[in-house]
Every structure is written in C-alpha cells, then in structure tokens.
Simulated assay, not measured.
Amino acid sequence: MRATLDRGLPVRLARFVRGSHPPVPSLAFAVLWAYGVTGLFAALDPGAPPWRPGAGTAVAAATVFVDLMLMRALDDVRDLDYDRRFNPGRPLASGAVRTGDLAVLCVAGAAVLLLLNAARPWRAGILLAQLGYAAGAIAVHRRWGRPSADDLFRGLLVSLPAPVLLHLYLYAGYLDASGGEPGVHGAVAVVVAVLAAGHAEFAGKLTRRPRAGERTYVTTLGVKGTAALALTLPVLSAAVLVACSQAPAGWTLVALAPLAVPAAAARSFARGRTRWPSAAPGAYLLLCFASYLVLGLTR
C-alpha cells in the first residue's frame, strides 16, 4: 500500500499543477513579474546605472514561478472548505490531490528555492521567511479560524506580507546586480506594485449579485463602492509611478497604458454585466509588469 501511494504522489501533484498552476501561463506570468518588477526598481532608482536583465533576473523568474506555485498550494489548503462549495473543480476541492500531497510539494519546493538561490543565502532567507509566514498564517486560520475567512479586509491585511516579501526578494536581487544601496525608491516601487495588485483583488471579486455565502467586498462596500475602489487603486499606482519615475519624460507615459484595461472592463461592467470581466484583472497586471520592464530598460 505504501508503495502504491508513493507511486501515486507524482500523478496527484501533476493534477494539482495542471488545475491550479498551469505551467505555460504561470511561467509567462512569473517571468513578466520578475523582469517587470526588477525593471520597476531600476525605473525609480535615481542613482541607477543603465539596467539590463541578466542571469540573476532569470534565476529570479524561476524562483517566482516556484514560489507562486507554493503560495497557490497554501491558498488552496486555506480555502478548501470554501472551494468545495464555490470552486469544486479545483484539484484539492475535488479530491484529485490531498493536503498531505501539498505539504510534500511545499517542502520539496522550498528545497528547490534554496538551491536556486544558494549563491545568495540572505535572499533565500527572505523566501523562507515568506513561506514560513504564509504557512503560519494558514495554520492559525485552520486551527482557530482567525481571521474569519469572511472578513476579507482583515484577511487581506494578514496576507499582505507575503507579496511584499516576494518584492523585497526581487529588490535584493536588483541591488546585488546594480551594486546600489537600499533607498526610498525601493519602498515606492513596492507601493506601486501592491496598489496595482490591489486592483486585481477587488475587481476579481466584483459582482452585482453575490451568491449566498460568496466572499466579495460588495457585501461591505456595495457594488459602487467596490467598483470605485477597484478603479482608484490602478490610477493611484500609475500616478505614483509617473511622479517618481526616473525614465525619460516621453517614456514615462508608458506607465499609463495598462489603465486601458480596467477602463474597458469598467465600461463593460457599467453596461450591465453581472460580474467584472474575469480576464481583465490578470491582463492589467501583465501589462503593468510589461510597462515596468520597458521603463527599466530606458534607464
């Protein structure tokens, strides 16, 4: 029986990867995230030398790919009960993979992250801190139900350190490559990226008619309030980027291009759609990363 279970583990993990972290789109997203946010640090750094991606950026992209897979696994464990009701097709909710399998994946994935970043142990330490924090927060939630899964705002605050730490990992890589010193520009870049991601968080849960028990900010802010916040965040993100960018003036306008996506989605939603267009938040983030990369390359 033990041998049968061991042989079945790779199959179940493959089901998880296909269903929750499909390799091709996930890799494209990770590459744009790593290259784009690293470019963002360069675009906002007043003392930066000309920046070009290198081998370290490629390692960062591979790291982000693995890290996001582990974050997805932890999120699926946290949301298991909810997904069984609202997303029954997810691998964990459907029984295609088990929580124990995902624990094995997280341990193996952490080892891979350490190997990828063995040359810079302190950067690996940032990743371990992120994974440890995320796992600890989920363990507290599963054991004591805190914060309540229905308290989206508190849950958002609790989960915020995980992406911030991932951005700090990318910042550490940028500093290593550029030979620069930490500065306010690094914090500003993280704010720009977090505000952009905030749009995806609020827009992705925007619906006019929530199903019974569905987690959405509409129950607290209403449809108009949620839509207003979802549209304010990308505008703020672009405004901060434009105000602080060190790129040539003409190129700075590239920061405004991603706003076309939430604007088009808002127009569609205003015409009576029940839900915000599902592909729009992801498309917006990808365009943001691409614009950050372009701005970084102009330095």
Results as ranks from 00 to 15, higher is better:
residue 107 V to G: 02
residue 7 R to W: 09
residue 297 L to D: 04
residue 183 G to L: 08
residue 156 L to Q: 13
residue 280 A to N: 03
residue 143 R to G: 03
residue 110 A to M: 08
residue 60 A to T: 02
residue 32 L to M: 15
residue 215 R to S: 05
residue 59 V to Q: 11
residue 244 C to M: 12
residue 278 S to M: 00
residue 246 Q to K: 11
residue 110 A to I: 01
residue 15 R to Y: 00
residue 257 A to N: 00
residue 3 A to K: 11
residue 74 L to C: 05
residue 211 R to W: 00
residue 98 R to W: 00
residue 261 V to E: 05
residue 99 T to P: 03
residue 29 F to T: 03
residue 215 R to A: 08
residue 102 L to H: 01
residue 75 D to P: 02
residue 108 A to Y: 03
residue 123 R to W: 05
residue 160 L to N: 02
residue 2 R to D: 10
residue 292 Y to N: 12
residue 296 G to P: 12
residue 183 G to W: 04
residue 250 G to H: 03
residue 36 G to Y: 11
residue 206 L to M: 08
residue 74 L to H: 08
residue 238 A to H: 10
residue 118 A to K: 00
residue 30 A to K: 09
residue 123 R to S: 04
residue 245 S to D: 04
residue 232 T to Q: 02
residue 185 H to A: 04
residue 245 S to F: 08
residue 262 P to Q: 04
residue 286 L to I: 01
residue 209 R to S: 14
residue 27 L to W: 14
residue 245 S to C: 12
residue 94 S to R: 14
residue 11 V to D: 07
residue 60 A to K: 01
residue 81 D to H: 14
residue 183 G to Q: 05
residue 2 R to A: 12
residue 224 K to V: 13
residue 114 L to Q: 11
residue 233 L to W: 03
residue 144 W to M: 03
residue 3 A to M: 09
residue 183 G to C: 04
residue 197 A to R: 11
residue 64 V to Y: 08
residue 266 A to D: 06
residue 225 G to C: 08
residue 164 V to E: 01
residue 215 R to W: 05
residue 113 L to Q: 11
residue 1 M to D: 09
residue 203 A to I: 05
residue 177 A to R: 06
residue 164 V to L: 15
residue 176 D to M: 00
residue 159 S to L: 10
residue 163 P to D: 09
residue 77 V to K: 07
residue 178 S to V: 08
residue 200 A to V: 04
residue 212 A to H: 08
residue 6 D to Y: 03
residue 79 D to L: 13
residue 221 L to G: 05
residue 24 V to E: 06
residue 179 G to H: 10
residue 8 G to N: 12
residue 246 Q to C: 14
residue 130 Q to F: 00
residue 31 V to E: 04
residue 275 R to C: 11
residue 16 F to K: 01
residue 218 V to I: 02
residue 133 Y to W: 14
residue 155 G to V: 11
residue 111 A to P: 08
residue 77 V to L: 15
residue 114 L to P: 00
residue 179 G to Y: 13
residue 192 V to L: 07
residue 203 A to C: 07
residue 105 L to W: 01
residue 200 A to T: 13
residue 261 V to I: 15
residue 217 Y to K: 09
residue 15 R to H: 13
residue 89 G to I: 01
residue 291 S to T: 12
residue 2 R to C: 04
residue 147 P to G: 04
residue 242 V to W: 12
residue 24 V to K: 06
residue 233 L to T: 07
residue 109 G to E: 12
residue 105 L to G: 01
residue 52 R to S: 13
residue 63 T to C: 04
residue 209 R to Y: 07
residue 234 P to H: 07
residue 269 F to N: 02
residue 46 P to G: 10
residue 250 G to T: 06
residue 28 A to R: 07
residue 202 F to Y: 15
residue 171 Y to M: 11
residue 294 V to G: 06
residue 137 A to E: 14
residue 45 D to N: 15
residue 193 A to G: 01
residue 56 G to P: 07
residue 231 L to P: 02
residue 34 A to M: 10
residue 96 A to H: 00
residue 208 R to I: 05
residue 130 Q to V: 00
residue 70 L to C: 10
residue 31 V to L: 14
